[in-house]
Design a protein around this nucleic acid. Structure first.
Lengths: 223, 223
DNA sequence: CTTCGACCACCAGCAGTTTCATGGACAGAT
DNA sequence: ATCTGTCCATGAAACTGCTGGTGGTCGAAG
């Protein structure tokens, strides 16, 4: 099982990591929130073990950020704070379990195993690609050929939708339902307009066109 | 097996219902979307057979509504013409299969049986093959001998129709009804013209011909 | 067995229609 | 006031159906 431990206290961190490794798991250890975010988004973990109090990005914010980006990896919070409020906050932020220090290693191990069993994880994508274009869902950034492209929210949503369904034609109706959440024909060319604006930013300044029109059907980004 | 047929055309509806009853199934028949919704939610069916175009609530919306309510009954769509857009939606909106009218009853029967078994192969039937040619319905792409062929909507529809009925001769009349949705002779040679254009793209650049003329009858793609 | 005529199929080009792209105007939200 | 989302009008491009000429096929008659 692949685990990430986020703990700034060196002693505690290595102690946990060694214990889990002895149980046969692969363990990465980072000591601050930013590294944790990078690791968690670039590597697929089965469970994250996160100290509430770590430098740069605190554990709570870290998890909220991951959840916001669609990452559903189960999280076990470690904390020396044990107030009821803290627990509630931890659980509602998307953290799946909570362990108050000091704890017996056996309990940690058992909870990690339980979390992993409860939510068999598939590594979550946080970046989407097509050709020389990269979309980072966490930072909400789009880069093409080294240049950053700034997109409006709606444009971002459309591009994300197309990228997630790379190679498949998306009809106007599908887009209307997915992006605008309406299931009827608005009798206008909203979709065309937004596609046009998106193209102006994403395709026009570059040589090759990513967004393709499929006449009589819809739009598509090539695989 | 308990089945619900949603079809507003009386002739077709009773035809389907009788055929299925003769196979030993219990069949309910309704002629509009609202009755269908009521029936489907109050009675447990094994498969729904739904015409795309029915009064009050159209087939598409009906199924979406059911899915939204957590109903996972497999659905077989019946669609007469079917614009390209309609077809793509049918494949991805939660309907498990679709059948283009006119169809052989045997085919309907087989598909219903497959759906009831929840055979995953049916739902994934989004690519059609013949020789070295592959048609991907989702991406709306046709590849032959590694090369991509770009087809116009009508050409695409014809090729799809022929591929779905591989080995069987399709008469001009059948094509007119299936692709153009007209049941009279237009007194022109539309079909020939489009077949010709299709051949120019699909057959001429290659060694062997897929589309064969059956003199005095129609066209066929060999199995 | 060949020839002829009738029929059928093929195909290139044209023109009408439909569909799509785009720039600009406008209204609502922040 | 600025930014965002929507609507509208226009022009361009794509698509479709038709026409008419050409070539091929079949059967019957010579």
């Amino acid at each position: 099982m692949k685990l990430l431990v986020v703990e700034d206290d060196e002693t505690t961190g290595t102690y946990i990591a060694r214990g889990l490794r002895e149980e046969g798991h692969t363990v990465d250890l980072v000591t601050n929130g930013r590294d944790a975010l990078i690791q968690a988004t670039s590597v697929g973990y089965d469970v994250l073990i996160v100290d509430r109090m770590v430098p740069q990005i605190d554990g709570m914010t870290l998890v909220k950020t991951l959840r916001g980006a669609g990452n559903r990896t189960p999280v076990l919070f470690l904390t020396s704070l044990g107030s009821v409020e803290d627990r509630i906050e931890g659980l509602t932020a998307g953290g799946d379990d909570y362990l108050v220090k000091p704890f017996a290693f056996g309990e940690l191990s058992a909870r990690v195993a339980a979390l992993a069993r409860r939510a068999p994880t598939v590594a979550q994508e946080t970046t989407l690609h097509a050709g020389d274009l990269t979309m980072d869902l966490l930072s909400r950034r789009v880069i093409r050929a080294g240049r950053e492209i700034s997109l409006l929210p709606r444009e971002f949503a459309i591009l994300e939708h197309l990228l997630r369904r790379k190679g498949r034609v998306q009809t106007r109706t599908m887009l209307l339902e997915a992006i605008w959440d309406i299931s009827f024909d608005p009798m206008t060319n909203v979709v065309e307009t937004h596609i046009s604006r998106l193209r102006a930013k994403v395709d026009r300044p570059f040589d090759t066109d990513l967004i393709q029109t499929v006449r009589g059907a819809g739009y598509r980004i090539d695989a």
